[in-house]
């Protein structure tokens, strides 16, 4: 039997699962090339913050 309650809840869960997998993939990928992927709350004192890494690759 169709249920709006179950349908909306399932969609939210699916979206969350997709987002978690995507974030994890992105984070690990960035961490493996030297960036941290924004996985923490300390970007302001981080010289490896993704915004710096992406735009400004290391010299060597």
């Amino acid at each position: 039997m169709f249920s709006w309650d179950l349908t909306i809840t399932s969609m939210i869960i699916a979206a969350a699962a997709f987002y978690v997998v995507l974030s994890l993939y992105r984070t690990i990928k960035e961490a493996s090339v030297g960036g941290c992927g924004g996985g923490c709350s300390a970007c302001s004192h981080c010289k490896f913050a993704p915004q710096n890494i992406k735009k400004n690759p290391p010299l060597r």
Binding site: C36, S41, A42, A49
Partner: peptide, 15 residues
Amino acid sequence: ISGGIAGGCAVPGVM
């Protein structure tokens, strides 16, 4: 950086 004075992050700390 990892949080030695509390509140950092181990990722930049390790780097």
